[in-house]
Nucleic acid binder design. Sequence first.
DNA 1: CATGTCAGTATCCTTTTTGTAACCGGTTAC
DNA 2: GTAACCGGTTACAAAAAGGATACTGACATG
Lengths: 123, 123
Amino acid sequence: MEHLSEKECKSAGMAVRDTLETISGKWKLLLLLTFYKGGRRRFRELVKELNISPRVLSKELQELEMHKLVSRTVCDTRPVTVEYDITPYCKTLAPVISAMKEWGEQHRAEILGKKNTSENGGE
Amino acid sequence: MEHLSEKECKSAGMAVRDTLETISGKWKLLLLLTFYKGGRRRFRELVKELNISPRVLSKELQELEMHKLVSRTVCDTRPVTVEYDITPYCKTLAPVISAMKEWGEQHRAEILGKKNTSENGGE
DNA sequence: CATGTCAGTATCCTTTTTGTAACCGGTTAC
DNA sequence: GTAACCGGTTACAAAAAGGATACTGACATG
């Protein structure tokens, strides 16, 4: 990626922004990671496990579902239960997540590591 | 990146979140792109060009500067002017932006392109 | 000194996001 | 029926993000 033209910039910006919006939000990443590491979950399970309000959870899951990153399965049990999980399509995000993880780690080092050998705030 | 352990997940999530927060916000991407394609700008120039309020611009630039993505240079002119530009370090973001651009484009096709050839709700 | 430019801040306001809590309709258990 | 669990929504509150606008302080022009 050398230098982009005006037009390329705009469309690239749009695509990047789309991606950004898809995974932005306080809970989306955490939800994906939760499914990723622990498999599918029911609605109430998520509420308790993550300590998220049902209202917000419902909204986040709907958005993830809209973007095909999460599947919603109604199980034919009495007290009908609903299971959520990541989709295979979600794997297409891997390069993005991976790049962000790399940069985030490197960046943390850049920002925190080189502040000054003496000076120190931290929390 | 195959399957991550509990611990790996948490730290990866943190790094990803850091990256996300660094470039989230209504103007950050646009600012970076603006510098990228048109070079450095003065404060007022940005206000007019992007139609952003000085209050918000100031905040966004400060945040970008904190993250070393943007440089702030006070020019020794009368009416002192201040020039902002992307830093060389900003280039380290390229893989992230690139991955997000790719996915954003592919995802747009996935969501909009394949709704269904027959079925259709539409609005 | 009044007027204008510059970078940036202070004050106030609107919109968006997130959270709290009560609740609905359905089912099971008593 | 009453209570409990399920998925989920509704109505409301709090907080964060974004925005409009006036203003400060520095310098310059006339």
